[in-house]
């Protein structure tokens, strides 16, 4: 049996960072193991911020951070589920 998770229902997810979130993180993407206690997008932000270092720096002003799950906008209350891809970014400024 390969890749057994450390705890039941914890999951490995790819997280992408864009714009100044990417710059503050010092990387554009990474794989992160998300514990089973993380149920919503709001929980995820809290979990990442608690890792300290660049996470705390990038998420310092956490109320402005936007999140997408599998390339769709999500709110803080959105259930995290088992996304293949999570993205964290500042408010968008296209057009």
């Amino acid at each position: 049996m390969l890749d057994q998770p450390m705890t039941p229902n914890s999951r490995n997810c790819k997280i992408l960072y864009f714009a100044w979130v990417r710059e503050k993180m010092g990387r554009g993407s990474e794989e992160i193991e998300i514990p089973s206690s993380v149920l919503t997008v709001g929980d995820l932000i809290f979990f990442l911020k608690s890792k300290g270092g660049e996470y705390a720096l990038a998420l310092e002003n956490e109320s402005v951070i936007r999140v997408a799950l599998d390339q769709a906008h999500a709110s803080r209350e959105t259930k995290l589920g088992q996304p293949r891809e999570i993205a964290l970014f500042p408010p968008v400024t296209g057009g």
Partner: peptide, 21 residues
């Protein structure tokens, strides 16, 4: 307000920065 684009400006004086929403 929804399409995921981010603008970064570089000024003639060399400064650069992300545009605020």
């Amino acid at each position: 307000s929804r399409a995921p684009f981010w603008k970064n400006e570089t000024l003639r004086d060399g400064k650069s920065g992300w545009v605020d929403a």
